[in-house]
Amino acid sequence: MAKKQKSIREIFTNGLFKQNPTFVQFLGMCPTLAVTKSVESALGMGAGVIFVLVMSNLAVSLVRNYVPREVRIPIYIVIIASLVTILEMLMRAFAPDIALLLGTFLSLIAVNCIILGRAEAFASKNGPIKSMADGLGMAIGFTGGITLIATFREIFGAGTFLGMQIIPDTYQISILIQSAGAFLVFGILVSQINKIRMNRADRNEVA
């Protein structure tokens, strides 16, 4: 039986939950751990990834039929790198505070596996609309993932949410705001998400 064509909706939600890059695919770990100190930087990073991923998926999808197989990866890389450069310039011009906050991790979006991963795995095989839907879903899934981690870290580690004081200094778990805290929060979240996923898989089997 021919594989069933996925709907735009399925493609979009695929990245949000089922194939969430942060918690399921474990892609793009570097920014996941590095920019999740505050929700603000997580959202900034997420926005950057959304822009680059959607645009790169679109571009790759558009050129997919004209690109010789042998040089497709270099071409994807040129596209992605150019997009990141553009993003960086735009952010520094129009959102300098967030650009400053993200620092070098902004440029490092270029090497985020999700981008090249989706270009190769999806955009090079699908049309522009579907590719953009995939990119958007994946990027939003990624943004959601890191924002979730950042929420825990910022609230419990720094006692703030988006800079607003919530928990007094005395009751903060300051290790969460340090590098090791990223691993802790990430590990705990993955374990909980896996638990939910496994349960659902079990139920599916029974049904």
Partner: peptide
Amino acid sequence: LALTLVVLVASLAVFFVEGITTPII
């Protein structure tokens, strides 16, 4: 040809954006 074209288009795009953002930055 493909490589040249892509690099050319990408460069143009970057160049264009840079022209807009540089004075602001």
